[in-house]
Design a protein around this nucleic acid. Sequence first.
DNA 1: CCTAGAATGAGAATCGTTCTCGTTAACTAT
DNA 2: ATAGTTAACGAGAACGATTCTCATTCTAGG
Lengths: 146, 146
Amino acid sequence: MGAAPLHREVERRLVEHDVRYTRGRRAVVDALADSPGPRSAAELVVTMDDPVPLSSLYRTLSVLEESDVVVPHLATKGIARYELAEWLTGHHHHFICTSCGAVEDIELTPTDEEAVDSLVDRIAERAGYVPTNHELEIAGLCKECA
Amino acid sequence: MGAAPLHREVERRLVEHDVRYTRGRRAVVDALADSPGPRSAAELVVTMDDPVPLSSLYRTLSVLEESDVVVPHLATKGIARYELAEWLTGHHHHFICTSCGAVEDIELTPTDEEAVDSLVDRIAERAGYVPTNHELEIAGLCKECA
DNA sequence: CCTAGAATGAGAATCGTTCTCGTTAACTAT
DNA sequence: ATAGTTAACGAGAACGATTCTCATTCTAGG
Ligand SMILES: [Mn+2]
Ligand SMILES: [Mn+2]
Ligand SMILES: [Zn+2]
Ligand SMILES: [Zn+2]
């Protein structure tokens, strides 16, 4: 999704929740849209042009989370990383480096995603559940750490 | 696995790591073996008969984690919950109820697990990673909440 | 413009977790 | 069993990520 349609979608969602889509909130959405994976508050603050106080950044993230614009990702102990929700970015999975802790998005080929989907359906049904979503996280060594 | 064989396995592993299997460490392993799901330090401390100082409990958990006797499970923001490692309990996946938050183990059939394994290998290789582990979490409504 | 309510920023406070260091318990060799 | 050596423990301080407070600054509407 381009930047303009993204902002339009986000604004519509925030207005529904009676919150304003301010400069600071746009900046966070932009930073997350530019990121190849989930980012923590500390990681975001260095990528953003105008310096943002952490207290404001955390508040912004929790406002965005409340409106389901961003979703927290809890792969690293003691740190919450955020990414745009899948209704904005599309469904994807994650790779987590066991050495340096980096988290990167993995987009599956349609064939692989179908394979995962049908496997998840089969597994869940066998266990007696109705699946609405799934999360596949692959751990290992990233290119840097290999 | 019964309690006695469990302790024998854990002791062997700890001795390999030049670490003693003390009374306090046994108590934590017992508490986790009795738990129907991952438990945080704060949750464990109320479960255990003799009161354990949090500083000791945290140290015990990190010692056990270092020897791969327990693994952290990071489903809740800001809290680490621990469970016995899969070589003690068997490889399994998790189902997470989007309504009540319950986390339940899912054991795959050998066929399904092989399918997941090969899919993970293919996905990771295509993205340029060397996978050492994977985690598949299925979200949906549990039997209670359906 | 004015004004009321919302958002922001600086810093204090909180909370889970880790660290420090003096004391205690566990293994080893006698 | 005893003594010596070292690892483990416990109490509290310290730490880091996050949240809270509150005074100030924006912003949308009138
Ligand atoms: Mn992602
Ligand atoms: Mn998928
Ligand atoms: Zn890495
Ligand atoms: Zn449920």
